[in-house]
């Protein structure tokens, strides 16, 4: 899987923060992230001493545990130029680390340094590396897709991630973006919120599912696995009788890294997306159709 580094580029030393959800539920997100980083000339390591960013403790009001986990994460990433994670939410948490230490605590400055060096993957690729480095690497989709992008809350409002994933996705040949209504409205996941207030969470994700389905997209894309598990789980529950019409949910890095050979989130098999306009699917040797498959005029 090792990639050629882009020549004549400094190769930043990046520590991957895998995030607990991607680690457990969808390692392919981690490998897609690594692939993108390596394609754009980064040296990637995965520090052993990482676990979770500490957000569950922080949002439950347990500052002591949050600080202990923060200290551990700060140490784990001490030697890296950047921390990159496939999640705006976890990076958002790392940005809170400086608040967890008193001014005189040496970890306060270390926390600030880590916060300043930490990036969500699409923002790292777009804002730090630059889109040109990635452009050459992007593959044409074998099957055209229409995607709709859900803006996860922390990424959007805390980190200002909005155009980065869209600009990157637009570079992919055969991919069209169709914005859903209220792309910026919370999906109702909210970490422990979805189990503390399941009925409210359900209403929120039900609304979200309606917007996703109404968008006409065949693929739901996002940058945070928590939200994606929530939305994919709801879309599948709602559409259990019409599995062929289901919107496929994927993390943005899977599309950017052209790693679509794994099933969509919560699916058993790689699914061929439904389409209505004839196009030739060279990879599978079958004809597929889809109005959604037409590039935007």
């Amino acid at each position: 899987m090792s990639q050629q580094h882009t020549p004549q580029r400094p190769s930043p030393n990046v520590g991957l923060f895998i995030t607990c959800l991607a680690d457990m539920f969808r390692p392919s997100i981690g490998f897609a992230t690594v692939k993108l980083l390596e394609q754009t000339g980064c040296r990637v390591s995965v520090p052993e001493q990482q676990t979770c960013c500490g957000q569950p403790a922080y949002n439950t009001g347990d500052r002591r545990t949050s600080a202990e986990i923060a200290r551990m994460t700060i140490d784990a990433f001490a030697g890296y130029e950047y921390l990159v994670a496939p999640s705006g939410s976890c990076v958002g948490m790392i940005k809170y680390y400086p608040e967890l230490f008193d001014a005189e605590d040496p970890y306060q400055q270390l926390a600030q340094s880590l916060a300043d060096r930490s990036y969500e993957i699409t923002s790292f690729l777009f804002d730090v590396i630059g889109i040109e480095a990635l452009q050459a690497q992007l593959q044409q989709l074998t099957i055209p897709r229409t995607v709709t992008y859900h803006d996860s809350c922390s990424g959007l409002r805390q980190l200002g991630i909005k155009q980065q994933p869209r600009e990157l996705l637009k570079q992919i040949n055969g991919l069209q973006i169709e914005e859903m209504t209220e792309a910026e409205t919370c999906c109702g996941f909210g970490g422990t919120f979805c189990v503390k207030y399941p009925e409210i969470s359900n209403r929120m994700v039900s609304n979200k599912s309606e917007f996703i389905n109404d968008s006409g997209a065949d693929t739901l894309v996002g940058g945070d696995l928590g939200c994606l598990l929530n939305m994919a789980g709801k879309l599948q529950r709602l559409g259990k009788d019409t599995p062929d019409a289901l919107v496929e949910a994927r993390h943005v890095v899977e599309l950017l890294a052209d790693m679509l050979d794994t099933p969509g989130i919560g699916e058993q098999d790689v699914r061929r997306l439904k389409a209505t306009t004839p196009t030739t699917d060279f990879a599978l040797g079958t004809e597929i159709t889809g109005s959604a498959a037409q590039p935007r005029k």
């Binding site: 895998i18 991607a22 680690d23 457990m24 539920f25 969808r26 390692p27 392919s28 997100i29 981690g30 490998f31 995965v46 979805c194 189990v195 503390k196 399941p198 009925e199 969470s201 359900n202 994700v205 598990l229 929530n230 994919a232 789980g233 709801k234 599948q236 529950r237 794994t262 099933p263 989130i265 919560g266 699916e267 058993q268 098999d269």
Partner: peptide
């Protein structure tokens, strides 16, 4: 590829499926 009910996580699975892990951790 998903779980439709899970003990201790009914707050989740009462309303939505739980996507299953892919297998080995990252």
């Amino acid at each position: 590829g998903k779980l439709e009910s899970l003990p201790l996580a009914s707050g989740w699975t009462d309303f939505r499926d739980m996507p299953a892990p892919q297998g080995e951790t990252f």
